[in-house]
Design a protein around this nucleic acid. Sequence first.
RNA 1: GCGCCUGUAGCUCAGUGGAUAGAGCAUCAGCCUCCGGAGCUGAGGGCCGGAGGUUCGAAUCCUCUCAGGCGCGCCA
Length: 545
Amino acid sequence: MKKDLTAVLTNALENLRICPLPVIEIETPREESFGDVSTPLAMGLARSLKKAPKKIAEDIVNAIRDRTIFEKIEIAGPGFLNFTFTRDYLFASFNTLLRAEKSFLRENVGQGRRVLIEYVSANPTGPLHIGHARGAAVGNALCNLLEESGYCIDREYYINDAGRQVKLLGQSVHAKYQQLLGVDVPFPDDGYKGQYIDDEAAALHAEKGREYQGIPFETCGDAITQWTYKRMLDLIRKDLSRFGIRDFDTWISEKEIFERDEVRQAIDALQQKGFLYESGHALWFRSTDFRDDKDRVVIKSDGQHTYFASDIAYHKNKLDRNFDIIIDIWGADHHGYIPRIESVMQAFGYDIARFKVILVQMVNLLKHGEPFQMSKRAGTFVTLSDIMDLVGPDTTKFIFLTRKADSHLDFDLDVVTATTAENPVFYVQYANARINSIIANAMEKGIRADNVDLSRLCEPAEISLIKKMLAYPMVLGGAARSFEPHRITFYLQELAAMFHTYYHNHRVIGDDPALTSARLALCTGIRIVIGDALGILGVTAPEKM
RNA sequence: GCGCCUGUAGCUCAGUGGAUAGAGCAUCAGCCUCCGGAGCUGAGGGCCGGAGGUUCGAAUCCUCUCAGGCGCGCCA
């Protein structure tokens, strides 16, 4: 729909010798009476051409030579161009959609550009919680969406395995292990609490017996830390897999970045470019040269590097891999780090327009309508695994994807688990299951859908459904261009609603074989679109429920 | 104090500078001899937090202001 109209309009603008050619925006109008698609093109040109929008619109209409696919072209409101397609065009397009070819369903937004998307990247110090899950759902859907829209995607998870946090994890398990064996080792003040630490200590005992009994952390700490965090990482992978997140292409380790001396090299590189200076025995990055409001310490006066230093190295590592676009998906509580990382990117000479941080807002976990505060340190948190036991992966993902990434989200365990009616994902999946059931029914009755005469679809609801499906590629394209996968969930709910209404008003399988075939084709189209869209969101489309 | 995010229907949220601002839930009133009732139909519900500005046009952009959340370390 969009491709054809864009071609027509481009041709018309060329006939009018309008250049440079403006970006042609195509939208589906709010009211069906305004036509199938419309463009505010003439209004956008009003300023540069210094002519009234309606006059420009008239000129454009007159310049359209080939109008065989249109039933109607109207100028409306302040200067909208509204297009209504002929039935023949709609049926022909829908026929193409039925072949489910990606070239028809997709817009090539990416043009093969390479994108690195880093998301989740939770510290391997404990199980994933609901905040990580939101990042995972958004990141996974965005990767799928961009990949399907012509980008080459690398999915990456950054493992913070070098810092104090991982060591603290090891200390916590070490202490619990010793206590288990009756050795009185004090638990670290800010150690990790929670049942899983006890479980890990018990597991360590089960596997290694008394090997470390009475041995101080200074001696056996590295071994225990390694052992524990690898198990944590394994747990995270399992949770993500169960959550239905596609595996990452790269699991990149902070520790290995250190071991390859990349931190040193990155600091040297900044030093050479003159962005570092010494003050108070510490080494500073002059991020105020760019977009930060204060300079940042890279190496502390005690000679230790800061966390920021390894971030510099990691982002240089990303840059060195020559991606066209680099996307970081962070929890919104890290938003204060954006300016300094952007500064790093600029210092290395990278075009900041090709770096994007997507912030995923906090999830307010509620129980009985009351805030359910989570803290890994205090050990009071609900894990992603717990959530999946209660709610299920599909529902959890879908709910995360019904909101913009940067909008706050309430996730009330009672609401989400109590009444299934509040789970929009079921509504969509139900439509899919229903269609499968209808088609199975038809096949049992030996009804074939060969040589379908689509022109038998003449109910207004049928034409509306076809138009809705033909708009699907535009929705995907828009979502990809704006990095907003949530648009797809809204589209799906609308399409499902149209189908459910249609289903109640019209029987698909009836006495008229030709009409039945045509309606089966209609259903098949809906199934194709729902299946395709759910697939991109990373949500399953069960045949039966 | 400074910065970022969010204020849209009772609640949770969509809304790409464009036409009469939408959906789900909740509430109320209806629909199962019929392909899946996890469904359908209808009704009520709005000063788009507030005030200015930008222009042909603002929920959308700018300034100010109010409210909530988060962040502001030689922590990680």
